[in-house]
Every structure is written in C-alpha cells, then in structure tokens.
C-alpha cells in the first residue's frame, strides 16, 4: 500500500521533471527562432490577429465590468469612512497592480492559450508539422516562434487595455452614477498612483505572464499525444497550468516588487 503510493509519487515526480526539462529545451529552441520572426513580419501579423485581436473583445468587456463592479463595491465601503474621494485610487491601484495583469492573463489563457494548444495539437495529429519538417521547413521557426512572439506582445497590450477600460468603467460608475467629483477622482488617483512603482511593475507582471502562458500553450500543443483525446487533454492542461502559473508567479512577483 505505502510502497505503491510512494512509487506513484516517484513516478509523478519523475514525469514532472522530465516534462519540465523538455519544456525548457523547447523554450530554448523557440528563442533561437525568435529573431527570424521579426524579419518575416506577415507571419507575425497573422498571429497577432488570432492571438491578440480575437482576444480583445472578451478582455475589453471584462475590463469594463470589473472596473464598474470595483467602483460600486469600493464606494459602499469607502463612503462609511467618508473616503469616497479615494475611489479612483482604490480602483486604479487594484487594476494596475493586480487585476489587470492577473485577470487579463487568465482570460488570455482561456481564450488564446487554449486555441493555440488546440491548433498546434491538430497540426501535429494531422502530420502537418511532420510534413513541414520533411519539406525542410522547421516548424519551430515557422509555426511555434511567431505564435510565441505574438503572445508575448499581445498580453501586455491586452492587460493595459483591461486596466484602462476598468478605470473608465469605474469613472462612469463613480462620477456619472454615484456623483463623485470628476476632478477629485482623477487627481487623487494621479497623486497616489506611481508610474514606476505601480504601473511599470504591473506591466512587468503582464510581460512575465505573457511569456509563461504562451510558452505553456505552444509546448502543450507541440508535446501532445497526437489523437483527438490527446489534443483535448493538452488544451485542458494549458488552461489549468496557466492559471496555476499566473497565480503562483503573481504572488512571487508581488512579494518581490511591493514587499521590499
């Protein structure tokens, strides 16, 4: 009984190490193909479209609503202390430091990450990747690298859009609906939100999440078992692992950036 549990744990650990190792080698292979991506611009544009533009809708709508809800909830708490003037600060700091990168990252993993895994997995299972290799076209450079670069560029932009629209949503609720003075809303926010300490750190987070989520997505797709079941599992893994990675890294990054 105990022996089999231990053996199971051992196998799981070895498997994890094995996958981690392959994942890192894979990242190295991708990075070698990255410079070429900028030369072959049309490929990158196409991927920016399917990774970035297609995720824009869900990001924009979620951002707006998250901002509006934050404003509403924040207002009812702050008004008890007569501090409703700080509503802008509350919303801006929550969005810029945490919610923007994290929620945009989670949504991005669900929308673009899963699509990337499924697409690459299907290309693998229909022998398209093998076919490319035999046509002397390296799929790492032709297929994986442009998708990776597109993901890394897209997420910071999406996170910024998420935060900006969230703040606009909060402004709409705070000023138009709840009647907070517009001047106070913006000036308080501006005074307490710092460019380098808050905004730039948020952007750094979103870049890190962009790298990690896209990396997981393309790796799972490339490494999947090339059957319909395998692709389905890989897609699920992408979303789950991305979510864990984002939340875990967010804790680490927050401790590093704002803890010291």
């Amino acid at each position: 009984m105990i022996e089999s549990v231990l053996r199971g744990l051992g196998r799981w650990g070895l498997d994890l190490l094995w996958r981690l190792g392959r994942g890192h080698l894979f990242l190295w292979e991708i990075l070698k193909g990255v410079p070429e991506t900028f030369i072959r611009f049309p490929l990158l544009i196409k991927q920016l479209y399917s990774v970035g533009v297609l995720s824009l809708m869900i990001i924009a709508v979620s951002g707006l609503f998250v901002g509006m809800v934050l404003a509403l909830q924040g207002y009812y708490t702050l008004v008890d202390f007569g501090a409703e003037d700080s509503l802008g600060v509350l919303v801006a700091l929550s969005l810029v430091r945490e919610l923007g990168p994290v929620v945009a990252g989670l949504l991005f993993a669900g929308r673009a990450g899963s699509a990337l895994t499924a697409e690459i997995g299907l290309m693998k299972s229909t022998e398209q990747l093998s076919g490319m290799e035999m046509m002397a076209v390296d799929p790492m450079r032709r297929v994986i690298a442009p998708r990776f670069v597109a993901g890394v560029i897209s997420l910071p932009l999406l996170a910024a859009i998420f935060s900006a629209l969230g703040i606009i949503g909060a402004y709409l609720v705070g000023h138009v609906q709840l009647g907070i003075d517009a001047g106070i809303f913006w000036s308080q926010m501006q005074m307490k939100t710092d460019w380098s300490a808050d905004v730039v750190n948020g952007i750094i987070k979103s870049v890190v999440f962009g790298v990690v989520v896209t990396w997981i997505a393309v790796f799972e797709g490339y490494d999947c078992v090339p059957t319909s079941e395998g692709v389905g599992r890989a897609t699920t893994r992408t979303v789950v692992h991305s979510a864990f990675a984002i939340l875990g890294l967010d804790f680490v990054l927050t401790a590093l950036m704002f803890g010291g």
Partner: peptide
C-alpha cells in the same frame, strides 16, 4: 530534405492554406 519529397498517408496539407498556397509553400519558403 529540400532534395527529398515525402508524401504522407494523410497528405499532411496545411489546412489554413488553399491548394495553390500549399503547393507554393515550399517554393515560397526556399
């Protein structure tokens, strides 16, 4: 490999490209 052709059982055509673009693919790449 540029001097080898391989025909896969499934064809392994690139599904996001038309027939023309599929045949043009190796020419454009190489």
């Amino acid at each position: 490999r540029k001097r080898m052709g391989m025909l896969f059982q499934s064809g392994a055509l690139l599904t996001d490209l038309s027939v023309f673009d599929n045949v043009a693919f190796p020419l454009r790449e190489h």
